[in-house]
C-alpha cells in the first residue's frame, strides 16, 4: 500500500461501496419493492373502468414510466444522502483519508456502485412491468431517451443528495430533509394521485421545474415516438441541476472554511 499510487476505481472499493448500498434495507423497499408495487397497483386502479385495450395500454405505460423515476429518487437521492450523512457523522471520510483514500475515490466508487444497484433495480422493474403490466412497445429512440433521462436525473439526485448530506452533516437532519424532498417530488411529479392537470396553478408552476413531472406527464409521447417539444423538459433539468449545483457549491465552500 505504502508508496503505491491508489487507482480511483478498483474492484475492492466497488465491492465495498456496493455492500454499503445494499446494506441499507430502505433502498430495497423504496427503490425496488415500492415502485413495482405502486406501478402495478396504480395502473390496475387507473384502467379498472377503461374497456379500450389501446387506452389501457397507454395509461399503464404512462404510470409505469412515471413511477420509474422513483427508483433514482429512493436509491440515489434518499439512500445515498442518508448513508453519506451517517458517514460524515461518524467521521468515516476522515478515517478513510488517513488511510490514503481521497474523497474523490470514495465518491467515484460510490457513484459507480449506486449506478450498478440502480441498473439492477430497473432490470427488476422492467421485468415486473413486462410480466404484470400491459405496456406499449417503445420505439428505439424512446427507450434510449428514457435511459438517458433517468441517468441525468440520477446524476442530479446524486449531486443534490451529496450537497444535502454535506450541509446537514447529521443523519437525522439529512433524513428529514431528503424525505421532505422525496415526497415533494412525488407529489409535484404527479405520483401521489394528483395529476399535473388537476394541480392548482402555483403547484403547476413548481411542477414544471422538476424533471419528474415530465416522466409522468409526457414521456409516453417520447416512448412511442410521437412529436415532442423537449424545451420545457430540458429547462427543468437545467433548473434542477442549477439548484443541486448551488447547494453543492455552498457545501464545498463551508468545508473549505472548516465550518
Amino acid at each position: 500500500m505504502n508508496g503505491k499510487k491508489r487507482q480511483i476505481i478498483t474492484k475492492y472499493m466497488i465491492s465495498y461501496e456496493f455492500r454499503n448500498v445494499t446494506g441499507n434495507p430502505f433502498v430495497h423497499i423504496f427503490g425496488i419493492g415500492m415502485p413495482i408495487f405502486m406501478a402495478i397497483l396504480i395502473s390496475r386502479i387507473a384502467v379498472s373502468e377503461v374497456s379500450d385495450a389501446a387506452v389501457t395500454r397507454t395509461i399503464s405505460t404512462t404510470v409505469f414510466l412515471g413511477i420509474g423515476a422513483m427508483i433514482p429518487m429512493a436509491t440515489v437521492l434518499m439512500g445515498y444522502a442518508v448513508r453519506q450523512a451517517q458517514d460524515f457523522e461518524k467521521g468515516i471520510p476522515e478515517r478513510m483519508r488517513l488511510f490514503g483514500i481521497r474523497d474523490c475515490v470514495t465518491i467515484c466508487n460510490r457513484a459507480v456502485s449506486e449506478l450498478i444497484f440502480m441498473a439492477a433495480a430497473f432490470v427488476l422493474y422492467f421485468l415486473a412491468g413486462i410480466l404484470f403490466m400491459d405496456l406499449e412497445v417503445p420505439v428505439f429512440s424512446g427507450i434510449v431517451l428514457y435511459i438517458l433521462c433517468i441517468l441525468f436525473f440520477s446524476i442530479l439526485c446524486f449531486i443534490l443528495g451529496h450537497a444535502i448530506a454535506a450541509l446537514a452533516k447529521r443523519f437525522s437532519v439529512t433524513y428529514c430533509i431528503v424525505m421532505m424532498v422525496y415526497f415533494a417530488l412525488m407529489i409535484l411529479g404527479g405520483m401521489m394521485g394528483i395529476s399535473y392537470e388537476s394541480m392548482p396553478a402555483a403547484m403547476q408552476a413548481a411542477a414544471k421545474l422538476l424533471p419528474v413531472t415530465y416522466f409522468n406527464k409526457d414521456f409516453i409521447t417520447i416512448w412511442t415516438g410521437g412529436n415532442y417539444n423537449f424545451v420545457p423538459m430540458v429547462q427543468s433539468y437545467l433548473f434542477f441541476g442549477a439548484a443541486a449545483g448551488i447547494l453543492l457549491f455552498i457545501a464545498s465552500r463551508r468545508r473549505v472554511r472548516g465550518i
Binding site: R6, T10, S15, Y16, G23, K90, G91, I92, R95, L98
Partner: peptide, 21 residues
C-alpha cells in the same frame, strides 16, 4: 486515531480488503 469509525453495512473483512486493496 483516538476514535476510529467504519461502516456497519458489512463484515470487517470487506472493509479491510477495500482499505488495503
Amino acid at each position: 486515531m483516538q476514535s476510529n469509525e467504519y461502516t456497519d453495512s458489512m463484515a470487517t473483512k470487506y472493509i479491510m480488503e477495500a482499505i488495503l486493496q
